[in-house]
Every structure is written in C-alpha cells, then in structure tokens.
Simulated assay, not measured.
Amino acid sequence: MLTGKQKRFLRANAHDLNAIFQVGKGGVNDNLIKQIREALEARELLKVSILQNCEEDKHDVAKALAKGARAELVQLIGLTVVLYKESRENKQIKLP
C-alpha cells in the first residue's frame, strides 16, 4: 500500500508520460492485463487510457487493471489510469 507522499511523488513522475495502453469497447481482458503486467515490469509506472466507447464504469476498469496486474492504483483522473508496480529486475524509481 502506498502512502500519500509516495502517491504524490508517482503522480508527479507520471505527468509527462503518454498512455501506452487503451481500454475500449472490449473492456478489460486477460491479454490486456498480461501486456500491462509485462510493461510494468519494464517501466514500473505507466498510464492507461479509457476510451469513450468503453461500456464499463471507469472506476471498475481501474480496479480491474490494478487487481489483474497486481499493481497499485496511483491515480484515476478523467479517463486516464496511472498504475505502479515495483520491478523485480529493473528498479528505476526510488520511492520517498
């Protein structure tokens, strides 16, 4: 579980990132979660964009992504989800 200070630090680092995944009409599926898990191992911090045509609630999508990828939900702002998971091999981010 992240503290408020750690979430604030991660939000600041995520500000300049572009969303590398999109959740669309198909919603959250196993393939998407697998790809996000692999990307988190390489990057530790990433953004996921929820498209307008996604039929699921954005809060449910964010929780499903975090749970499926075993990651921390840093932020849900608008239709953008920020996820963090400490990498086992590529540690790049040092939390305060």
Rank of each mutant, 00 (worst) to 15 (best):
V23E: 08
I36Q: 01
L32Q: 05
G27F: 15
Q22S: 15
I36V: 15
Q22L: 13
K63W: 03
D57K: 12
I33T: 04
I36D: 00
V48S: 02
D16A: 11
A62R: 06
G4W: 10
V61T: 09
I20W: 04
L2I: 07
I50E: 03
L79H: 07
K67G: 03
T3M: 11
E38N: 02
R43S: 01
E86Q: 09
Q92I: 14
R43F: 01
V82Q: 07
V48E: 01
K58T: 02
L73F: 06
R11H: 01
K67I: 09
L17R: 09
R37S: 02
K67A: 10
L32I: 14
I36M: 04
G78R: 10
A62D: 07
A69Q: 07
A14K: 05
L79D: 04
L40F: 06
E38T: 04
R88W: 08
H59M: 05
V74T: 06
V81H: 07
K47F: 03
K47Y: 01
S49A: 12
I36H: 04
K67L: 06
F21R: 01
D16M: 09
V74A: 14
E86T: 15
T3Y: 12
G26I: 06
D60Y: 12
L10V: 03
K7V: 00
N13I: 12
R37N: 01
E56F: 08
L46G: 00
G24D: 10
T80F: 14
A64S: 15
S49H: 12
Q52L: 13
F9W: 04
K5G: 06
M1W: 06
P96F: 03
V48R: 08
S49F: 13
R11N: 06
K94I: 14
G4Y: 11
I33E: 00
K7E: 05
G68N: 11
A71F: 12
I33Y: 01
L65F: 01
G24Y: 08
K58H: 10
E72C: 04
V74P: 00
E55F: 03
N90E: 12
L40G: 00
E89D: 07
V81F: 09
N13S: 14
G78K: 12
E38K: 04
Q92K: 15
G26T: 08
G78H: 12
E56P: 00
E38A: 01
A12M: 14
M1D: 00
R88Q: 03
I20G: 00
C54F: 10
L40S: 00
Y84S: 04
L73A: 08
